[in-house]
Design a protein around this nucleic acid. Structure first.
Length: 597
RNA sequence: GGACGUGUAGCUCAAUGGAUAGAGCAACGGCCUUCUAAGCCGUAGGUUGCAGGUUCGAGUCCUGCCACGUUCACCA
């Protein structure tokens, strides 16, 4: 069944069609519709939408002002929703009728027909991809938030999204923490010592590194060259033995491995839950790396890969402007890219998706280019691989490095930001009447909201700087600011209802109301842009503008004490609209809104 | 060295090739007996790294240079 409202053409399209006709009729020229630029009229000029006529001067061969006013006259004759036009230099500013805005106001964020970007595509979206040795840190937070948010945005723009996680649960590094636990763990579990599972295991990884370095140092002092010492230290040899046993399927080793990974997953789950992150399916490298090896051997048979004398397998990508790349070591063990080839195939068998998107840091751009090329060589479609590349999170001291202990731990940061929300709330004292349970919930909503927004508001592809001293803000361009705007609107609406006003209606479209409606009108296009550019920050910029516009509106226009009833219900109507858009947009970031704040 | 990316106010960040480059934080000054001040208003702060070029129009595109980052592993 067709819905008249949602299928109704957006005004930009109507304008474009008519502008096209104008040039066709007057100048007998077919212009490119994409070259027509229609944007929201800038602050300080009269109008709702503006058309820039500069690009068409070559066709019209007149002055910009003349062309703009000719076009304005034409459009006004053809489109009855145009109320008036105004020409400033080469800009044609168009004001639409009150009826247009009244009709638009009936649409809501939850019922809009959002533009379809990857139309009906099935998308497998990988993100998080943790390593079972290291507790999650700030970099993972950015990754998780981007992944979760992009999944929401892509769903909204018409795609079917399957969220997957790929856990790096095998390799020499895992054996290091296993070995450390077997040697010095005294058989204790995380529950025994009251430490979160991922932290518990992470500590043994660090312990291994410490003891290993001691051994290396000792050997060097005895006169061994450092390079050799690193290979000869007893601990590293033991770890390698353990890896061999693991690969051979030694039951005792597998038992420890499973147990320790289990602890880690429990810890991760806790953090994921706090962040509001979830997955439809979890893949484990231990289950996919063999498939990659199979494919490499197949490629070798087909002759798209080649083998060196020492037995290592390579691919030549120089024809694609890349280098030679190792696919299997001389001892036939797999490397990183081998595993990614395997996971691609397994996923493709599982889902037959149109796109496989990976939220992975920009330091791996080269890796994904290589992966695409290799898949092409294997006769698969490498263009299905989409790397959602995001920038690093840096500290004032530089890059975060686990080994040097300069990482911001995810759990610590989450706790800190909730604590900060609590302090702020207690200082303001607005929640004093609430029960403890509600208070606690409110601190979490505000603190986590602040954190999520703080990270997602920055252009995903750019590196960002995080200062632990200053941590996240609660004022200005922040989630609490937006949450607060929403809370205040709700309070207003409740008050109105208590006064017996139950039906809000847009009866008046004055200038302040129009300003808000104009911003709301942009929303679907903002969503589309976020999906297209794979960047949630676009939405953050938008909600901030909307909240700011509304706060200005709220501060300068009395609502419950408006001059007359028509204005009152109109302002209430717009307020409610704004609240629903804010809520909708924040939900795309996984940010909730408290009842009170 | 090659490839990719970044460089905008003191700091953190915005700005589909378009109108006077905008916010927040920090600083300074106002607004709570009136709908929640986590708010609003104002002041100050800029040669958009440098030099050219394309264009009616350049922070945005092109070329060169400078600075910083990432990457080019039988690490993942």
């Amino acid at each position: 069944m067709q819905n008249q409202k949602t299928t109704k053409m957006r005004i930009q399209e109507t304008l474009k069609d008519n502008i096209y006709n104008f040039f066709n009729e007057r100048y007998n020229t077919a212009i490119d519709k994409d070259s027509i630029k229609i944007e929201k009229t800038k602050e300080g000029f009269e109008g709702d939408f503006s058309v820039n006529v500069f690009p068409f001067l070559r066709i019209a061969k007149t002055k910009p002002e003349t062309l703009a006013s000719d076009l304005g006259q034409y459009l006004q004759e053809k489109i009855d929703t145009i109320q008036s036009v105004d020409v400033v230099k080469g800009f044609l500013n168009i004001s639409l009728s009150d009826d247009f805005w009244k009709e638009f106001a009936q649409t809501s964020a939850t019922t809009i027909n959002y533009p379809s970007i990857y139309s009906n595509d099935k998308i497998v979206l990988e993100f998080s991809s943790p390593n079972t040795n290291k507790p999650l840190h700030l970099g993972h937070i950015r990754n998780n938030l981007l992944g979760e948010s992009m999944s929401q945005i892509l769903k909204l723009t018409g795609s079917k999204v399957i969220k997957v996680n790929l856990v790096n649960d095998r390799g020499i590094h895992i054996c290091k923490s296993m070995l450390a636990w077997m040697k010095w763990g005294e058989g204790k579990t995380p529950a025994d010592v009251g430490v979160k599972g991922d932290k518990f295991v992470g500590d043994f990884y660090v312990l291994f590194d410490k003891k290993y370095k001691e051994q290396v140092k000792e050997l060097v002092e005895k006169g061994m060259p450092e390079e050799e010492a690193k290979k000869e230290a007893p601990l590293i040899k033991e770890a390698q033995k353990l890896l061999e046993k693991w690969e051979a399927g030694d039951p005792e080793t597998l038992k420890v491995w499973k147990m320790m990974n289990g602890w880690v997953y429990e810890g991760f789950d806790e953090t994921y839950k706090k962040l509001g992150v979830s997955f439809d399916k979890i893949y484990y490298e231990s289950q996919t790396y063999k498939k990659g090896k199979e494919l490499v051997y197949e490629g070798l048979k087909k002759g798209v890969f080649y083998q060196k004398e020492d037995g290592s397998v390579w691919v030549d990508l120089t024809d694609a402007g890349l280098d030679q790349k190792l696919l299997l070591r001389s001892d036939q063990t797999s490397v990183y890219i081998t595993q990614d080839i395997g996971t691609f195939i397994i996923r493709d068998n599982d889902y037959q998706a149109d796109k496989y998107m990976y939220v992975v840091g920009n330091e791996q751009e080269y890796h994904f280019k290589v992966l695409q090329q290799i898949l092409n060589k294997l006769g698969l479609d490498g263009s299905k691989v989409v790397h959602i590349s995001y920038g690093m999170v840096n500290l004032p001291s530089g890059k975060m490095k686990s080994r040097e202990g300069t990482v911001v731990d995810a759990d610590d940061l989450i706790a800190e930001v909730i604590e900060k929300a609590k302090e702020k709330a207690e200082e303001l004292g607005k929640l004093d009447n609430l029960d403890e349970e509600t208070k606690k919930k409110t601190y979490e909503i505000i603190g986590l909201g602040a954190l999520k927004y703080f990270i997602l508001k920055i252009d995903a592809k750019k590196d960002m700087l995080f200062n632990p001293q200053q941590s996240v803000d609660f004022e200005g361009n922040t989630a609490p600011f937006i949450q607060y705007t929403h809370v205040r609107i709700n309070s207003l609406i409740n008050k109105a209802k208590n006064q017996g006003i139950n039906t809000f209606e847009l009866k008046v479209v004055d200038k302040p109301i129009r300003t808000i409606l104009k911003t709301l009108y942009e929303y679907p296009q903002i969503i589309a842009k976020a999906a297209l550019t794979l960047n949630p920050a676009v939405i953050a910029n938008y909600i901030y503008d909307l909240a700011r516009d509304y706060n200005q509106f709220y501060q300068t226009n009395p609502i419950l004490k408006a001059e007359n009833e028509d204005l009152k219900v109109s302002r209430l109507y717009v307020s409610q609209k704004v609240a629903s858009y804010l809520e909708h947009a924040l939900s795309l970031f996984g940010i909730d809104i408290p009842e009170k704040m």
